[in-house]
Computed example of a mutant assay.
Amino acid sequence: MRNSSVSRARQLRRDQTDAERHLWRHLRNRGVANCKFRRPHPVTGYVVDFVCLEAQLIIEIDGGQHAEAIADADARRTRTLEIEGYRMLRFWSDEVLTRTDDVLATIHAALTSPSR
């Protein structure tokens, strides 16, 4: 399972969406709250879009397919990751592309909040 997760993460890094590439430009090199993020990265049997391991914060970028088709699977995945101690932020792709400052402010607040 570990090898397949790593292989899948590598494939997703190569095939990032425009929104994922855009957000990565801001997150990389400790770009938000001086926190290190990894992009597509295996966590607890799932491959997540972005994760800051030290803050246990996961960021998922959802496209239109998330609206109905896999909402239940996303909810189960979120519950599993939260049980493992991770916090989850979800943004729509168009939100990342058109309201980047708001998205970054939300991420910054999650990283610097006392509950961290």
Rank of each mutant, 00 (worst) to 15 (best):
H66P: 01
S93L: 05
D74W: 06
D62V: 01
D15P: 00
T112K: 03
W24H: 05
S113I: 14
Y86W: 13
Y86A: 04
L111S: 07
L89P: 00
T98D: 14
E60T: 08
V103N: 06
S5T: 07
L57T: 03
R38V: 00
V103K: 06
T44C: 14
F50I: 10
D72G: 08
A75P: 01
D94S: 15
Q11R: 12
M88T: 13
S93M: 03
R77Y: 04
I107Y: 05
I83R: 15
V47R: 04
R79C: 08
Q16W: 07
Q65H: 15
E20T: 02
R90N: 09
E84Y: 15
S7Q: 11
R30I: 02
R77T: 01
L111T: 10
A9Y: 00
T100C: 14
L53C: 10
V6K: 14
L97K: 07
H26N: 10
V51W: 04
V6A: 13
E60F: 12
R13H: 02
A19I: 05
Q56F: 06
E82T: 13
L57R: 04
G45M: 10
R13V: 05
Q11P: 00
E68A: 13
E82N: 09
S113F: 02
S93P: 03
Q65G: 10
H66E: 03
L57F: 06
H66K: 01
R28C: 10
E82Q: 15
S5Y: 13
I107S: 02
A33S: 13
N34D: 11
P40C: 13
E95V: 09
I107A: 01
D102P: 00
S115E: 12
A55L: 05
A105F: 14
R39A: 11
R21E: 08
L23T: 09
A73G: 03
L97P: 10
N29I: 01
N34T: 04
L81R: 09
S115K: 12
L57N: 03
L12G: 04
W92C: 09
S113L: 04
V32T: 11
S4E: 12
D62Y: 01
H41R: 07
H41A: 11
A71P: 01
S115L: 11
R79V: 10
R116L: 13
P42A: 09
A73W: 08
L104C: 04
R39H: 14
A55D: 03
V6R: 15
T17D: 05
T112Q: 06
G64I: 06
R116Y: 08
H41F: 14
E54G: 02
P42R: 06
I107K: 02
H108M: 09
E84W: 14
D102A: 15
A67F: 10
Q16K: 13
I58A: 01
R76A: 11
C52N: 08
P42C: 07
L12Q: 11
R13W: 00
Q11L: 12
E60L: 12
L97H: 07
I70N: 14
E82W: 01
D18W: 03
R99V: 02
S115N: 08
H108D: 14
T112P: 00
V48S: 07
R87G: 00
P42W: 10
W24F: 08
D62P: 05
L111V: 10
V47F: 03
D74L: 09
Q11M: 08
W92A: 15
E20M: 02
E54I: 01
V51L: 09
R39G: 07
G45K: 10
G45R: 09
A19C: 05
P40A: 15
